[in-house]
Design a protein around this nucleic acid. Structure first.
Lengths: 365, 365
DNA sequence: TCGTCCGGTGTTACCGATCACATCGCTGTC
DNA sequence: GACAGCGATGTGATCGGTAACACCGGACGA
């Protein structure tokens, strides 16, 4: 790629230095260390810069000299499009950006295809620290991050022993949801699950697929559900589990349609996200089932759509925005050389709303 | 900020060059121009790099040498948090990222506070081109972009004469929505509008505020609405217009609550986004009004939530993903030195669904 | 047999800054 | 009155690459 020198060369520090008759370092100081020179000279320099159209020190060159890219990378594993349509991600990202922005760092986004972000994209990444969000365990890109010597901060996933992380107790979240429904008297359940493997698979997930899951979150939430059901004397082996390919309403509708046509029909659906749950509510209605009279639905996350929905969704709340903020703080800390490895575990709560209630026939069949 | 040299220096091109006994340029070629050296030597170099833990050419240094930051900046004007919660943005951004990703460019995000992105953040921006999304006209940050000599691509807003842009015919969209409702027999309207000014104001918008609007989109859509109503002989002066501070359901609910308590009560609500419209539907229901029997609601955008909602929303469709993709193409083109200034205007359609119908009393009063 | 072309590699000059340190002219002090 | 101290500026090395071009030896054509 030849540099196209047809466009006029833009002014640099040198241009200004010559014009004012001082050294390059002094011009640099005018921008970066105002206390190092007299106010009068500084004004002269800045004035000359303005009239010469110099926009300030080139950030890339500065980056080389300071050996900092001046950016933090946010890496999403979600396949292809649609990543940003996930409100859980939106809210988390928003918390993150609100923390790092202003601290002279910008945010660069890197997305992955199926199987995670590309290794070579990591090699080209201009960033000082990487925040990984919702990646499968052991994606090759992470090895590339380590190879580059970049600090890594993990949100939820993947499980990386050498990286600080912020997460919630997903198993506890699962238990809270299941306990709520068991307490209401439900005995027949269906699970609308996150992906277990990064292969885009959709459909009923058998035991083998669940056991080898490469997403810790899906594993933990499912474990939470099952432990409660087992304790309540419910045979977990027979419980239908639908693996959705993504956290979207459309996927939730499809899953619910399958789950609610099993026999015996579940009276309660445990969903791993609010989007899936919202889709499940729609799916149930399409089947002519009333929520919560005939089917209870419990989500996960408590996104804005959950409380604003119709009906408002019973769900497990996790502090999404705070998760983003904490991740930002950890990233900033890593940049400052603070290598804290203690995971940050945020709380979860049950938020009962209008999509859960006692089953119509407490003793189904 | 002193460079912390306590951490061991990482290998560079020189390290590898010395180890293999070739020149720096040859190592560089091994990565960037495989055809410039023998395959055997290339393998030896790459092998040495691997065993020495060299992660490949430093992207920042490469950026300085090639005079490219290797990134495109996406600048959002939306105040503070919540930007990513807007599905219209999500979809557009996704289209954009899917285009530029893979072309050796990453995406850096810059958000603004009230009043737009900060000028100084623009000065520090490591990017080769800027994509501005939904900014008010004349925000100071744009002057900074120009000062830096960065190409600019505009999506929808702001109106910048020297920048290529992609947009829709917003006035036509407004007309389509209004014509649909007029044809159904409506005579009493309310408008749920986007912000007219970047001051976070919320409430009824009088004529003065509307006339000085700094958001072209809000201006044009409103003009579209009003032109149709005027043609139908409806006095536009009396029509209530609520200015929402953001495109969110919560804001929509609040606006609808005010609009639907005017007298005479509007039988139809023209909303500038689907999120506002979805909120309006909820607001109407809270007031005990049935949609569409007692209130018709028409949105704008046709986001996934519009079709998946309950009830499905009558709306104006615009090709959001394509907008993002086109913006990406324009950005890539600008990078390649192609300075095309013809605006890219995408089509809009009316999508009638379940939230619009004839008014209960065609001749109100 | 000699000149030329060509693939492969080294040379050298940047790219546009930052930073540690040297230098310079004053002022204040004993 | 000499010297230390200090604020203000200049010097020179460096950050880690890229790219144009020079150079070198062997193959090939005349």
């Amino acid at each position: 790629m030849p540099v196209d020198d047809d466009r006029p060369r833009r002014p640099t520090l040198d241009t200004i230095a010559h014009a004012v008759g001082v050294s390059r370092a002094t011009v640099s100081n005018a921008y970066n260390r105002p206390d190092q020179l007299s106010a009068e000279l500084r004004d002269r320099i800045l004035g000359a810069a303005r009239s010469l159209g110099y926009p300030g020190p080139n950030p890339v060159a500065r980056g080389l000299a300071t050996r900092r890219a001046g950016a933090i990378a946010f890496v999403v594993g979600t396949p292809l499009a649609g990543a940003f349509s996930d409100p859980a991600l939106s809210v988390t990202l928003d918390g993150l950006i609100s923390t790092v922005d202003g601290h002279e760092h910008s945010l660069v986004l890197m997305r992955g295809e199926r199987g995670g972000p590309r290794r070579e994209a990591v090699a080209r990444l201009r960033a000082d620290v990487v925040v990984a969000y919702s990646l499968a365990d052991d994606v090759p890109a992470l090895a590339a991050v380590r190879r580059r010597g970049l600090p890594l901060v993990v949100v939820d996933q993947p499980a990386v022993p050498w990286a600080p992380r912020v997460e919630i107790d997903d198993e506890r979240g699962g238990r809270l949801a299941a306990e709520h429904l068991v307490a209401l008297g439900h005995r027949w359940f269906g699970v609308l699950a996150f992906p277990f493997h990064p292969d885009g698979g959709e459909g009923p997930a058998d035991h083998g697929r669940r056991a080898t899951a490469r997403y810790r979150i899906s594993r933990d939430r499912l474990t939470g559900y099952l432990s409660v059901l087992a304790a309540a004397g419910i045979e977990p082996g027979a419980m239908p589990v639908w693996e959705a390919p993504a956290s979207s309403r459309e996927a939730g509708r499809r899953g619910a349609r399958w789950l609610l046509t099993r026999s015996p029909r579940p009276t309660a659906l445990l969903c791993m996200s609010d989007e899936l749950a919202l889709g499940a509510v729609q799916g149930a209605r399409h089947l002519g089932l009333r929520v919560p009279e005939e089917v209870s639905v419990v989500g996960f996350d408590d996104t804005p759509a959950a409380s604003g929905g119709d009906p408002p969704l019973t769900t497990i709340r996790q502090p999404l925005a705070e998760k983003g903020r904490r991740a930002g703080e950890l990233a900033l800390a890593a940049l400052a050389g603070d290598h804290e490895h203690r995971p940050f575990i945020l709380p979860v709560w049950l938020v009962p709303r209008a999509t859960s209630g006692p089953p119509r026939f407490p003793l189904h069949h």
